[in-house]
């Protein structure tokens, strides 16, 4: 039963966000053939960003106004449900988005894409197994499990030292909002799916963050590696998408080895990707910054290719 709940939480985090992200991803994607690569990662990143921004609103209001977590749960839940419903409606009613979704689904008909998906899934699984089997260190100076536990036990958004339970006297403000955001997000999912702290932090969160991290690096690689391929395609050269796909898979394989061997990780926040996946620093170092760069580069490249079309 617990496994089903965890799978449900992960499914909502990945599929729900992707569904929401499909709309901005469709608007970001250019019309040229070389831009028509698999956009699931981009949609996931965009959707997660939108969901988190939406959830940040009730958390900030609660922390600044001194409200309890119940307020966040109710308002945040309503906002996210509304967002999901809106995304579903738009997916059906906006023609460009609908066409984009159909094109993405059409990729699944191609055997080459199935092989690519298989390889990517294998790389993801190799990192996920390490994440799930690894025993996280608890005696670090990070205190998110305690904050989550304290928030769950008291329903307070701040004002409590999570390590001792002492009242700190600082219960509201922007700083509290920033520190309470991630615990509130995890607690929201825990309440929604009746999960325990351990299950959320050490099973669901690592898998979710790993998918986000790989998507971000995939998108960065897609932009960085596609420069010459795109040039060739524009000048009527080689079949750029196929070359890109092959390059991207090799790049992702090297990225997986890099991460797995602790090279992109040791002594820096991304170390957390395999060790403290649930911490804020991991979210920042391994997901947020790469994702921001990935999306900025995508937008930059889109602007560049549009400029060429005008010329």
């Amino acid at each position: 039963m617990n496994m089903i709940r965890m799978a449900g939480a992960l499914l909502l985090l990945l599929c729900g966000s992707s569904m929401i992200g499909m709309i901005p991803a469709a608007l970001l994607c250019g019309r040229k053939e070389q831009d028509r690569h698999c956009c699931a990662g981009r949609a996931l990143l965009l959707g997660t960003g939108i969901c988190m921004l939406c959830f940040a609103l009730p958390v900030t209001v609660a922390c600044v106004r001194g409200k309890s977590f119940l307020f966040v749960f109710r308002l945040g839940g309503s906002l996210l449900a509304l967002l999901l419903a809106l995304a579903l409606c738009l997916l059906f009613f906006i023609r460009r988005v609908r066409r984009f979704c159909m094109e993405q689904l059409a990729l699944l008909r191609s055997r080459k894409w199935w092989i690519s998906f298989g390889i990517l899934a294998g790389l993801y699984a190799s990192l996920a197994i390490i994440c799930l089997l690894h025993r996280p260190l608890l005696e670090s100076r990070f205190d998110l499990p305690e904050r989550l536990s304290a928030m769950q036990g008291t329903n307070l958004m701040g004002g409590i030292n999570p390590l001792t339970g002492e009242m700190t006297g600082v219960s509201s403000g922007w700083g509290t909002a920033a520190r309470s955001f991630l615990p509130a997000w995890y607690l929201f999912l825990m309440r929604l799916f009746h999960l325990q702290v351990w299950d959320m932090l050490f099973k669901v969160a690592p898998l979710w963050l790993l998918a986000l991290c790989m998507s971000a690096y995939y998108e960065i690689g897609a932009v960085v590696l596609s420069y010459s391929a795109a040039d060739e395609a524009i000048t009527g050269g080689q079949a750029a998408p196929a070359q890109n796909r092959r390059r991207l898979l090799i790049y992702m394989a090297f990225f997986t080895i890099f991460t797995l061997c602790g090279n992109g990780a040791y002594m820096n926040p991304s170390y957390g990707l395999l060790h403290y996946a649930y911490e804020e620093t991991t979210l920042l170092g391994s997901v947020l910054l790469p994702a921001v760069f990935a999306l900025l580069l995508t937008a930059f490249r889109l602007g560049r290719s549009k400029g060429r079309q005008v010329e």
Binding site: N268, T281, G285
Partner: peptide, 19 residues
């Protein structure tokens, strides 16, 4: 706003260097 922010410079290692 973030804990362990004194280590933020290490982000540089992973974001551009890794890629």
């Amino acid at each position: 706003f973030l804990p362990a922010a004194d280590e933020y410079y290490r982000l540089w290692h992973i974001v551009p260097a890794g890629v």
